[in-house]
Nucleic acid binder design. Structure first.
Lengths: 200, 200
DNA sequence: ATGGTTACCATACGCCTGTATTATGTCATG
DNA sequence: CATGACATAATACAGGCGTATGGTAACCAT
């Protein structure tokens, strides 16, 4: 047996270097050489852990999704137990938007990933599944809130779900500084307040 | 004087070829050679009308924005005169989302453009201005509707504007077929109905 | 201690990129 | 009709890209 290294850890280190490159210089400059430079390793080293560029990108993307999930999970712990679904939705949206630096990197990653996925069947499938899962989670929350009387029963769960998920449309507005983070949060709060207004 | 050609027309033809490439194969494959091939001209020909790639991209982007504006203008003509602001907003949103093939190309163009703009000061300024203009137009509509009693006066115009603009967040959901066009339109209608519910 | 497996690195290959250069055709005018 | 401006084209160049290859160093089991 040779020298022992934690493969998963090495791959995560490299993936994080990729995030930084994407965050600072954009998806197009996320080349093997640039990522290796950012990670402080040689091109050969990087190749040892990621044979292909596509493999690196998908791995980094999955890791970013996990990371976002972890941020949400951590945020949930800070809420009342059990948390009000309104607060859960607010937290999820807040973590998906580029409001803080860490979230910004993930946000830029997934934006570029989606764009690339449109023309690559394999990526498309994965990206589609991810989005579908996210939407399904929101829908579950909303249906449950309706059942529990926190949302008025005359609200259509599908439509309300879509409206919530669509609020990720704040991303370009935030990125190009058309609106400030507090404005995005205010709008989200307003929307959620109305959704949960008429009951509980 | 030499042979006479309409420069603007030639540039538009090439820009449209760029749209097709971006629409079908993605921003990354929108190279000078690929666009020339799609346009059915030589690389030299393309270079004669666009010295640099950046120039081509910005021109094509501006043209796409104009085109979207024209679609909205044409749609306005089909509405009641004067049109109800609710219908205007619905039309604008519908034309910005990738619901029909022509709109899809423009949508993909601007998505890629915004992503590229994040890391290029010049593009960033232009993209920011475009988005700001769009938001300002929506805000004007909403403030006017409040003044005219079509929207309840206790609604905050800034927040309502942001919520409307954020509905462009349906784009990735539509692109990855997480939701169907009719669902996006239903959600938009629901949101607008509520916004315009309490008056007029 | 030695063999074999793994980590790591430098370099090379073929391809594609944006752009520059140069040549040729094509026309309206002096 | 010749001349000069423009349209179009072909080719060249330097650089960056993903990936493949070969070699060296480090380590553990035997």
């Amino acid at each position: 047996m040779p020298k022992l290294v934690d493969h998963q850890e090495r791959r995560e280190t490299i993936a994080r270097a990729l995030w930084r490159v994407v965050d600072q210089h954009g998806w197009t400059r996320a080349t093997m050489r640039e990522v290796a430079r950012e990670a402080g390793v040689s091109l050969g080293h990087l190749q040892h852990y990621f044979t292909s560029r596509t493999g690196l990108l998908t791995f980094a993307m999955e890791l970013a999704a996990e990371q976002t999930g972890d941020r949400v999970t951590r945020g949930l712990a800070a809420l009342d137990q059990p948390p009000h679904p309104r607060d859960v939705l607010r937290l999820v949206l807040a973590e998906m938007l580029p409001l803080r630096p860490e979230a910004r990197a993930s946000s830029r990653m997934s934006a570029a990933y989606v764009l690339e996925a449109l023309h690559d069947p394999a990526l498309r499938k994965q990206a589609g599944l991810g989005l579908r899962d996210g939407r399904a989670m929101v829908e579950r929350l909303i249906r449950q809130a309706i059942t529990q009387g926190q949302i008025a029963p005359d609200r259509d769960p599908d439509i309300e779900t879509d409206l919530i998920v669509a609020l990720t449309g704040f991303t370009p507005l935030l990125e190009l500084e058309v609106i400030e983070p507090h404005a995005a949060l205010a709008a989200i709060d307003q929307h959620l307040d109305r959704l949960f207004a008429e009951a509980s």
